[in-house]
Design a protein around this nucleic acid. Structure first.
Lengths: 198, 198
DNA sequence: TATAATTAGACGACTGGTCAACTATTAAAA
DNA sequence: TTTTAATAGTTGACCAGTCGTCTAATTATA
């Protein structure tokens, strides 16, 4: 095992632990002390693996994206289903994660950080915006297929419909936290099925 | 002028100034020092007018609601327009505030605080949830009227449609911050008109 | 022995909050 | 009308603790 690999493995371990904290508490409420304590490393080591707290956050965003987007992507691109079915499976898959894994508490880390930091930290804003645009691109492809198949509503063009549904999801996550309930997520899925993708 | 009135006037002045900070930066990134500096008062005075930083935030939420909900309410209940027109005017009114006054930066203070604090501060969560439910009630009344008038879509019941549209708005505010653009707001209004309230 | 990896502890700045001393205002008593 | 006592409002120094960051020293590897 090379040193750089070992280095990266340890950095990833710290990221994995600290990411959960920043996901739940946000950027400003998560201190470097919290992270090193949770990861069980001395404080000095943090700055051997990361340039700064901001650097940690940016790398946490990258890791979050890699860990969480991959599985959802598999659902979105599963050729066993029609484009419309893949879209519905994709939204259901993400809804279930919010409902079951996260107990209606934490929402999406990228959305949380964007909401808290976008106005004041351009690096974080750009990083999250890039991730969003990648997700958007993948959904859009399937959305266009579904429209061409005449499987879903054509009154609104695919780009606007894609953006719209992504926004509903983001908003439902805020309401979910606010109400401490999965009802907003359930409602979102229901209406997407009823009105948007019919 | 009674003492208590004078007291309340000064407390309101501090709130007005500090609220803007907390709106923009969030709870954890706004220090008591920031607030007293912006308000031009000594630090000691802060704790004469407020029990704690949390108490300040709760009172800021109340003031935000009073200052911002009233004008929107007038639009929603303007009897010169039909229920559907009132709904559209209402959503347009709020969209314009986001676009023009806030330069696509700050979003809604209640949503911001809910997203940042709901999981970790039950008082703030409950306060914001209460405000949301009041807004919801007013929109719902008009939404039901519009459905009874056959002015808008009846495929989804009024409650779910109301919640859904509120969530789109919340999500569009996150995307607005993320992209630093009013495009998500414009898109939201367009699709509400095209698909939901037709 | 030379180099790389790791770390303890300290840095100055800042956190939310307290407090005793202070002045301004008010109302009752003389 | 003046004096007095009580209260309301104001103040900055100060607390213990934490913040993000850095460096000098140590330990492990080659």
């Amino acid at each position: 095992m090379s040193k750089t690999l070992k280095h990266d493995l340890k950095a990833d371990a710290i990221l994995n632990t600290g990411m959960e904290l920043m996901w739940s508490r946000g950027y400003n409420a998560t201190s470097v002390n919290d992270i090193v304590k949770a990861a069980g490393i001395p404080k000095g080591s943090f700055y051997f693996y990361f340039d700064s707290k901001e650097d940690f956050a940016l790398k946490a965003i990258d890791m979050y994206f890699e860990n969480h987007f991959g599985p959802a992507m598999k659902v979105l691109n599963d050729e066993n289903f029609s484009p419309k079915e893949r879209l519905l499976n994709f939204y259901e898959f993400r809804a279930n994660i919010l409902r079951e894994e996260l107990h209606c508490k934490m929402g999406c880390m990228c959305c949380n950080l964007a909401n808290e930091m976008a106005e004041h930290n351009e690096e974080i804003r750009k990083s999250v915006a890039l991730k969003s645009s990648i997700v958007r691109g993948h959904i859009l492809k399937v959305m266009i297929e579904a429209q061409e198949n005449n499987e879903i509503n054509k009154m609104v063009d695919a780009e606007h419909l894609t953006d719209f549904i992504e926004d509903v999801g983001k908003g439902a996550m805020i309401t979910m936290k606010e109400m401490n309930s999965s009802q907003p997520i359930d409602n979102t899925i229901t209406i997407i099925k009823t009105l948007l993708l019919r």
